[in-house]
Design a protein around this nucleic acid. Structure first.
Lengths: 346, 346
DNA sequence: TATCGTTGTGTAAGCGTTTACGCATCTATT
DNA sequence: AATAGATGCGTAAACGCTTACACAACGATA
């Protein structure tokens, strides 16, 4: 049913129906009520494409995720999407997903979406691949977007930026570990380059602890990688009294390997990880880890985007989301509290 | 840039450009090549809404998920979405998500989408809430959809159906357990009504085992629920030699409780669960569980839907996806193999 | 050479909305 | 009672694409 047919059927013009729907323009309250009610009854819903065409607005926003797609690393996406959806649906928008994990080399789907006006704006996730050039191309299309990154971007018109700042959580890790007396701390990284190690090291050293170079090993992404790394660290002598693992997924494997080495977590060795993926609370013992509030991240991003789309005054183009440690059961004081390594020493 | 502007700029008419884009209608190969090339150069992309309006096709399909939204139960959604996306993007379609977990009582978002022609078709997940009435309303809008359910639906025009049949996996569970000699089997269910228990019981009894009524307890959804249920089962005497747990999430808690009761998995008691969520391989020991291939489910559904949309002949309107057991390390032969319970006995 | 089908292109009428504009019809003012 | 400004509504022109139809140019046939 088209708006014309419907209008005729209820004895008004299409313009009146349109005005009733949007509550804009001059229309009497009675007529409006009547139209809305009959819409319910007859089940008329305006054609979205015609609306979008006329409005030059689709009320759809896109989510572009640049990055490797492994089963486990995907999990954060759903949390992000949930945060985004929540805000979005309150404003009558919906979410269009790009093919997860299918990164189109020649031209990002997002650009195509933007040019074809399929989306009004977009949220872009995936730190390493967000280049300024790429963004510059994107915004030529007069599409707003907000990117979620680790390090603030140079300001570009029409580009918002919410940065995920890991330092708070990392500082808390250092605090916890050092205050318990850990000073020989191991580090299992994921993929280089890595901005977390320097952060952690600085914090730890400031508190009298130490992450000496031979105590850091870069593993990879999978639990097996984590296990391998943990085996390596655990055979060092002296053994680290605590290990920070860059991701929960790695930590899963690391914990397994540590147990297999006959060590007890956290009595013999403490473990702290990062991400707080859903299963972190179900490991044995439950994993102490740094929580990243992806839902909050999604919310912030979409709020910013909507503010831009609705051309609100004074839109804050930069926001920061912090992380925080959630303590569960993989950290305890070190067993022998006598060994104090000198700052920077081996 | 509109198609008119672009056409003028390259010295042809808009009709020619359109024909070049779609490769339909009469157009010389040279002109077509030229147009396509200049599209690249000038960066022209047709407006999607205008296209959809003219075509009466949006090339977007919706995913509606009816159901409770808990963090862990969400995980299957992403696998499903991945399967869907994969096929979809090969055919130039994209996916529109309904607000996850926001079930609009008055009128499903999907219906609104369908009526407003935002989507060409939809995939509906969420067994318990898929009522035939609801579907009947949906198809009034001439929208195709395929539902993913556990039990085949009465055939409706325009409604495809892929059913997830759990029986194969359940039979394998019964096989495994009984062939190892387990005959006193406990059952931890999730939420009633439950179609799995009858299936499992039938299979088990056919093989000489038994799930006696006091060996089944309905728990809920969370790991804590699972733990409570396991504690209850484990204190029975005689104790079950194996427990089937309806979901991996419940099993997590159950395993923890079993360990806390001083029992060893699988030596003292075997555990088999269902779903094979990502972390199932990382429990300690790794969980033997029934795998549901959600990606396959998504693929099947979307293939069927696309076939319907493209009005292919002889579309198979019903497909079945089976489950299968993946054996990991939570099952072993029972410790004392002497007790043989009579079929159907207490 | 006149005729006919074929081929490539342009013209214009949709597709289903929104909205600027104009025209009645009212109330409020003199 | 005549006029001015509100107010409510309809008409019609966009919005940017597709496609049926018309038409010109062409090689093939008689």
């Amino acid at each position: 049913m088209t708006i014309e047919e419907f209008a005729r059927k209820i004895g008004v013009s299409s313009a009146t129906v349109s005005r009733a729907i949007h509550g804009r323009g001059r229309i009497s309250p009675q007529t409006r009520q009547m139209v809305l009610q009959r819409m319910e009854e007859l089940g008329f819903t305006p054609n979205l494409h015609a609306q979008s065409l006329a409005h030059r607005r689709s009320h759809i926003i896109g989510l572009e995720y640049l990055g490797h797609t492994e089963v486990l690393s995907d999990m954060f996406l759903i949390a992000l999407a949930r945060g985004i959806q929540h805000v979005l649906s309150e404003h009558g928008y919906t979410l269009l997903l790009n093919p997860v994990g299918v990164v189109d080399e020649r031209e990002s789907l997002l650009r195509r979406w933007a040019r074809s006006r399929a989306v009004d704006g977009a949220i872009v996730v995936g730190d390493p691949d967000v280049s300024v050039e790429w963004l510059r191309k994107l915004i030529t299309q007069k599409t707003f977007c907000v990117v979620i990154v680790h390090h603030p971007l140079p300001p570009l018109p029409g580009v918002g930026c919410v940065t995920l700042d890991l330092s708070r959580g990392i500082a808390q890790v250092a605090d916890l570990l050092c205050s318990l007396g850990h000073c020989r701390i191991g580090y299992i990284g994921s993929i280089e380059p890595d901005s977390v190690l320097p952060m952690l090291r600085q914090q730890v050293e400031a508190k009298g602890g130490c992450i000496s170079p031979e105590m850091v090993v870069y593993a990879g992404r999978t639990p097996d990688d984590g296990a391998r790394a943990a085996r390596e660290l655990v055979t060092k002598s002296p053994r680290p009294t605590a290990i920070f693992v860059r991701t929960d997924v790695l930590a899963i494997g690391a914990m397994q390997a540590i147990r297999e080495a006959g060590l007890c977590i956290p009595k013999d060795i403490s473990v702290v990880a990062h991400d707080d993926v859903p299963f972190a609370q179900f490991t044995d013992p439950p994993l102490t880890t740094v929580r990243v509030d992806y839902e909050e991240l999604g919310k912030s991003a979409v709020e910013m985007l909507l503010a831009m789309l609705e051309r609100r005054e004074s839109v804050e183009l930069h926001r920061t989301v912090h992380t925080s440690l959630v303590q569960r059961a993989t950290v305890a004081p070190p067993l022998h509290h006598k060994t104090i390594s000198l700052p920077g020493g081996i």
